[in-house]
């Protein structure tokens, strides 16, 4: 698996609307951060991890990179899944003030990182 810099997400912060994120290898959570005081860190991690695992299990893409977007009433979970099994999951508020371009850029760069190797 292509190495993921420890500051891959943190170096891009702040991103308006981003309330939490997790970075996953094929089989474990490498990093989890909750950026909102209105969420428990464990809840945020649980939510994102479940979305990552659900995407892999229910909507598998084989060896292709993929992007998932899970939409709830108040939040969205974006998951960028790389061909090498690594995933980046971003938990984002569901409101028009979110910096969507930066969210999308972060997801895209995460996938591109593996391709560049």
């Amino acid at each position: 698996m292509t190495e993921i810099p420890g500051n891959f997400v943190s170096s891009r912060l702040p991103i308006v609307g981003l309330v939490g994120y997790t970075v996953h290898s094929e089989d474990r959570v490498l990093e989890a951060e909750c950026l909102s005081k209105s969420l428990y860190p464990t809840s945020s991690e649980h939510l994102l991890t479940t979305l990552v695992q659900s995407g892999r299990a229910l909507l598998p893409t084989g060896e292709s990179a993929a992007q998932y977007c899970w939409i709830f009433e108040c939040v969205r979970g974006y998951v960028a899944a790389r061909a090498d099994g690594a995933c980046l999951a971003l938990l984002v508020e569901n409101n028009p003030g979110v910096q969507m371009l930066r969210i999308q850029e972060t997801l895209r760069d995460f996938v591109e990182m593996a391709k560049a190797e």
Partner: peptide, 11 residues
């Protein structure tokens, strides 16, 4: 979590 009702997923 205060996520509210699930609406949809896209892949």
């Amino acid at each position: 979590t205060p996520s509210g009702r699930f609406h949809r997923v896209s892949m």
